[in-house]
């Protein structure tokens, strides 16, 4: 029990280190968008998601509606349900409903990737160790970034605004090289997003992301449905 927790914590360290640098960028960006340090840290501690939070801050800063905010989180974070679905098949018998309710808070791309790669069934204590360290890294990095965002020279904080997007590029480019259909999806989404920025400028930023992402994914799901044998590694 105890050793599983420690094992989870150890596996969480590389994730936490990656999170600190990226959430540092999120902290800076949130403060630049007009949020307080407490709000930035509160968002990271309660959401534990990069893309969803970035879109959320944009929508809050633009004075968007709660419906728009909720829908944007639904679409952007929809991938977590797939990961949850996949993890649900891999849980140990000791993973009772209360444990599931608690551990599901910590499903992120990276935590999912590490947990899914573990041999055998997952124990609650392992998941808690993994999630705890990763969440501390994410929240701590946000705090550092938000505080630094107020103290560091404007030129420095401005350049840090690109950190989060750099991470997004690092996530989408390698699979785009491997798979033409993923590349197609990325390209269509970017093109529709550009249309919203320069042509249909009346549409708010949250809905622009929702529509661009959903249309591109639907188009590619029709043109290039995922073959059954690919699912295990893709999910």
């Amino acid at each position: 029990m105890r050793s599983d927790f420690l094992k989870g914590m150890t596996h969480g360290i590389p994730i936490a280190l990656g999170y600190i640098s990226v959430s540092f960028g999120f902290g800076i960006a949130a403060v630049r968008a007009g949020l307080s340090v407490a709000a930035a840290v509160g968002i990271s501690a309660s959401n534990l998601t990069s893309a969803g939070q970035a879109a959320g801050v944009e929508i809050i800063a633009a004075g968007g509606t709660l419906i728009e905010l909720a829908l944007s989180q639904l679409v952007i974070n929809l991938r977590y349900s797939l990961m949850g679905l996949s993890l649900s098949q891999k849980l140990d018998d000791s993973f009772t409903v209360p444990h599931r309710l608690l551990a599901s808070f910590g499903i992120t791309d990276e935590i999912f990737a590490v947990a899914a790669a573990q041999p055998g069934k997952l124990k609650p204590s392992y998941m808690y160790g993994l999630i705890l360290i990763a969440a501390l890294g994410w929240t701590g990095g946000t705090l550092l970034g938000a505080v630094a965002g107020q103290a560091l020279p404007q030129m420095f904080t401005a350049a840090m605004g690109i950190l989060l997007y750099g991470m997004f590029i690092a996530i989408i480019i390698p699979p785009s090289r491997k798979s033409r259909s993923v590349f197609g999806a990325v390209l269509i989404a970017a093109l529709i997003s550009l249309l919203f920025k320069f042509v249909f400028t009346k549409i708010s930023v949250g809905f622009a992301i929702i529509i661009s992402a959903s249309v591109a994914a639907a188009v590619m799901a029709l043109i290039a449905p995922v073959p059954d044998d690919e699912e295990e590694e893709q999910s």
């Binding site: 991938r79 997007y165 997004f168 999806a185 390209l187 529709i192 992402a213 995922v226 699912e231």
Partner: peptide, 23 residues
């Protein structure tokens, strides 16, 4: 199959739409 494929593409399209042109 459509829903599974849609869910496979969503992470990439979301990140792409968020990144371009905002970056």
């Amino acid at each position: 199959k459509f829903l599974r494929s849609f869910l496979k593409y969503i992470p990439y399209t979301v990140l792409s739409a968020m990144t371009f042109p905002a970056i």
